[in-house]
Amino acid sequence: MTRLDEVGLVARRLGDARLAALSVSAGASLLRQSGRHGDALTRDGRALALVDPRPDVHDHAAVAAVADVMVNLAADNLGLGRFGASERLLNRADRVLAPHDETVGEEWVTGRPRVRLFWVRAERALYTGDPATALIEARRALALVRRFGAAAPPRHRIKTELIVAAAVSASGDTDPAIRTARRLRAEAAAGDLIPLEWAALSLLAGIGDDDAYVRTDMDDRYRLLYARGMPFVTVTNDR
């Protein structure tokens, strides 16, 4: 995260609050992906303090920055089991994005945080034992990603399909979920998207894939991510 901190420092010197907030929030995402939700919450709180919570609706970059931070905070609270706070933050992000509704020609700059909003809503539904709602929200995200086509990076499409697979599995239909996760694991590996490959392997392990190499490969990718600086929870930083 050192380079992200440097970007944030330069952004603050230049008076670019949006870039400063996004650099802080990007660092928080690494912590969140590593299971350190409390640390991520602190960092995302700093990001929110850097942006105007009521951005000009015509400034799409500002709208995206505010919505992103709110979605991130919702994900942090979800990881901490604070479901009510998570829902309130998602609703706030939804209101920020409302003038850029996906039904009226939304651009990817604001479409991306909306996709992420659907992700967290789906994950919240999974956390609270509502796989039907999770599947609805995950499919909304997938429909939006597909509508943007090449404008949406492959990693967004892969993660979205992984969330759909998780919701399908939670609904009791594990075989198609396993097939999808295996395909996505291969696609992530081909694109050197190691965090997503690890996520796909973790999903496969969680839903009972009988491939003998799943857990071995998952541990291998974990070690690789750790070696590359992913700040996983340890006895010294456990939050």
Rank of each mutant, 00 (worst) to 15 (best):
P99I: 00
H100N: 08
D101I: 01
D101L: 02
E102A: 03
E102L: 01
T103Y: 11
T103I: 06
G105A: 12
E106F: 02
E106A: 14
E106K: 02
E107T: 12
W108Y: 14
T110D: 04
T110G: 03
G111H: 03
R112S: 14
R114P: 09
V115M: 06
V115C: 05
R116M: 13
F118G: 02
V120D: 03
R121G: 08
R121L: 11
R121F: 03
R121Y: 06
A122G: 06
A122R: 02
E123Y: 10
E123G: 07
E123N: 14
E123Q: 15
A125E: 04
Y127H: 14
G129R: 05
A132G: 05
T133Y: 07
T133H: 13
T133I: 01
A134I: 00
E137I: 01
E137P: 04
A138R: 01
R139S: 12
R139Q: 15
R139W: 09
A141Q: 06
A141L: 06
L142T: 00
A143I: 01
A143Y: 02
L144K: 11
V145S: 05
V145L: 04
R146L: 04
F148S: 00
G149W: 00
A150Q: 08
A150M: 03
A151D: 11
A152F: 06
P153V: 03
P154I: 10
P154W: 15
R155N: 07
R155V: 00
H156P: 00
H156R: 12
R157A: 07
I158T: 09
I158F: 09
T160G: 05
T160Y: 04
E161D: 08
L162D: 03
I163W: 00
V164A: 03
V164T: 02
A165W: 03
A165H: 04
A166V: 01
A166Y: 00
A166H: 01
A167G: 02
V168R: 04
V168Q: 01
V168P: 01
V168F: 00
S169K: 03
S169M: 06
A170Y: 06
A170P: 05
S171G: 14
G172Q: 07
T174S: 11
T174W: 02
D175P: 00
D175S: 08
P176E: 05
P176N: 05
A177C: 06
I178R: 14
R179H: 12
R179G: 13
T180S: 10
T180Y: 04
R182N: 07
R182W: 06
R183Q: 12
R183T: 06
R183C: 09
R185M: 08
A186R: 15
A186T: 09
A188E: 12
A189R: 12
A189V: 13
A190C: 07
A190D: 15
D192P: 14
D192W: 13
L193I: 00
I194M: 14
L196H: 10
E197H: 09
E197M: 09
A200R: 13
A200V: 13
L201I: 12
L201T: 11
L201D: 08
S202T: 12
S202G: 14
S202M: 07
L203P: 11
L203W: 12
L204A: 11
A205Y: 08
A205I: 00
G206H: 08
I207S: 09
I207Q: 09
I207L: 07
G208I: 02
G208H: 04
D210I: 00
D210Y: 02
D210W: 03
D211R: 07
A212P: 12
Y213A: 12
V214T: 14
V214E: 10
R215N: 13
R215S: 14
R215Y: 08
T216E: 15
T216K: 14
